[in-house]
């Protein structure tokens, strides 16, 4: 390292880094096998630890079938759906700081967000396009699962869970559609809920429950808001948990064909 009194800056930084990584605090944060831990080496054992000892990664098994990691098999569509959901959650929380779900305030808030909040416009755009993209990826994911016959035993039930996820994704997107409270929102939701009214037998009831009345009002806005930011995410997270869990319990990714 240092030769005499000539200690370079890089050396010193490296030394500090070494010391930090040797500290008790650092040691306590990272569990055994973490690549961030001092002295990590690439070994089969550590590769297992990376997965097993991390709360996020342990959604994964330690090993997967080789063909399963080929991009061309899953096209990453399920994973991307999930990732988009995370992105939507993050951007959505940001939006919630600036949004009030009442008829007079909602529109003004969105307008202000787009014009006078730092990155407000960008985050709103990401949230909106991300939502459209998620509907698309979920749909494509379903298609790829079908074409692989990946819904066949033992994965039948996970397909059913998947259909529920598709429905929930659509509902999340639809409830979010109303929130800007502009002409697009109002009338798209009016058309949408009118279609709900055509449901046989219970049509009117379905519509009433959706709207919180007989037509779109401020009550509908509150209802859609709560469903959008709390109720539906809560439900979809549960179903996603079951979905991922079943992917593993049903023997990992299907195939190869």
């Amino acid at each position: 390292m240092a030769n005499g009194d000539k200690t370079s800056l890089a050396d010193r930084v490296g030394e500090v880094g070494e010391r930090v990584r040797a500290s008790q605090a650092w040691e306590s944060i990272f569990r055994p096998g973490s690549p961030f831990k001092k002295g990590y080496t690439d070994s089969p054992r550590n590769r297992s630890y990376v997965i097993m000892n991390n709360v996020l990664y342990h959604l994964h098994p330690v090993k997967v079938k080789r063909h399963g990691v080929r991009l061309s098999y899953t096209l990453c569509l399920g994973g991307l759906s999930f990732f988009l959901f995370i992105l939507l959650t993050i951007t959505g929380i940001f939006l919630m700081f600036y949004y009030r779900p009442t008829a007079p305030a909602a529109y003004v808030d969105i307008e202000a967000l787009s014009t006078s909040v730092a990155f407000g416009s960008l985050v709103r755009n990401m949230h909106r396009w991300g939502a459209h993209l998620m509907v698309l990826t979920v749909f494509l994911h379903m298609s790829r699962v079908f074409y692989h016959g990946a819904y066949k035993p033992p994965r039948e039930f996970n397909w059913v869970v998947g259909v529920v996820l598709l429905l929930l994704t659509l509902l999340l997107s639809f409830t979010g559609y109303l929130l800007p409270w502009d002409q697009l929102a109002l009338w798209a939701v009016t058309v949408g809920t009118n279609m709900g009214g055509f449901v046989p037998v219970f049509g009117d009831q379905v519509k009433f429950v959706l709207l919180g009345g007989v037509e779109v009002t401020g009550a509908t806005l509150l209802r859609f808001y709560v469903a959008h930011v709390l109720f539906l995410p809560f439900i979809i997270v549960i179903f996603m948990a079951v979905h991922f869990w079943r992917v593993r319990k049903d023997g990992g990714i299907s195939g190869p064909l």
């Binding site: 008829a103 529109y107 969105i110 307008e111 787009s114 416009s121 960008l122 709103r124 755009n125 909106r128 396009w129 459209h132 509907v135 659509l170 997107s173 639809f174 559609y177 800007p180 409270w181 502009d182 002409q183 697009l184 929102a185 109002l186 009338w187 798209a188 009016t190 058309v191 949408g192 279609m195 037509e215 779109v216």
Partner: peptide, 26 residues
């Protein structure tokens, strides 16, 4: 960055746009 999300006029119950379309997935 490229695409601005739409924000039309304030919701108006008395002004029905023509055509009225549902969200694209519907």
């Amino acid at each position: 960055v490229i695409l601005q999300a739409p924000l039309l006029d304030l919701a108006n119950f008395n002004l029905t746009p023509n055509p009225s379309k549902a969200p694209w997935y519907f």
